[in-house]
């Protein structure tokens, strides 16, 4: 009951923040509202006992993305240009996508149901076997780093690739245009 109430309040706040993001034209305010949205999402993950995801959402979504967005805003204008085309087509796309997503949720089992397929077959097996197999008390860690080691290696490689890509784009620019080379700026 209390959890339903907390989730209701948080989700309502998220909806309000979303409407704010759509309506506000000052991009600085949009970035800050996006950060608030991420914190609300992290709180919902906390209520759902997904602490790992909540930590990631709070630090990446609300922290680092906001800083990077503000740094990008420093380099551009902070006021959103008025839309040149009619809003009818984007609205139509958003409505159809939203309807498809809601239609997709109709087949999901009710929230918190214990006897669904994912909890009775593989999930139960991992919960039962992970401590005898790996002796690591945290099942999430043993699945991520041990059972699914290849997958996590792939994820790390993705982050590595992203880092190299960003470095190549930014470094390549500064070589061709020497005036942007100095790193003396205290931007952001």
């Amino acid at each position: 009951m209390v959890i339903t109430l907390i989730n209701g309040v948080l989700l309502t706040l998220m909806a309000v923040v979303t409407i704010g993001i759509v309506r506000v034209r000052n991009l600085f305010a949009v970035v800050i509202l996006g950060s608030i949205y991420s914190f609300l999402m992290a709180s919902i993950f906390m209520v759902m006992d997904a602490v790992d995801v909540a930590m990631t959402e709070a630090s990446v979504g609300a922290g680092i993305s906001t800083v990077l967005m503000l740094a990008a805003l420093y380099l551009t204008k902070t006021e959103e240009a008025p839309p040149v085309h009619s809003v009818a087509l984007p609205l139509f796309v958003a409505l159809v996508t939203g309807a498809a997503l809601i239609y997709g949720t109709l087949d999901l089992p009710p929230f918190g149901t214990a006897d669904t397929v994912m909890h009775t077959h593989l999930g139960a097996k991992f919960l039962a076997d992970s401590i005898p197999d790996t002796t690591v008390p945290n099942v999430v860690t043993s699945i991520l780093a041990d059972y699914r080691g290849f997958d996590t290696l792939g994820e790390t490689t993705v982050i590595f690739t992203a880092g190299i890509g960003v470095l190549m784009i930014f470094k390549g620019r500064s070589k061709r245009r020497p005036e942007t080379e100095s790193n003396k700026s205290d931007a952001a």
């Binding site: 680092i64 800083v67 990077l68 740094a71 990008a72 420093y74 380099l75 996590t152 994820e155 790390t156 982050i159 590595f160 992203a162 880092g163 960003v166 470095l167 784009i169 930014f170 005036e179 942007t180 100095s182 790193n183 700026s185 205290d186 931007a187 952001a188």
Partner: peptide, 22 residues
């Protein structure tokens, strides 16, 4: 994972913050 993630995030920040307004 820690080393790659931390250094990549710091590299992103350095790359963005090092740019001058044109």
């Amino acid at each position: 994972v820690l080393i790659t993630v931390a250094s990549t995030m710091v590299a992103f920040f350095f790359a963005f913050a090092g740019r001058k307004r044109t």
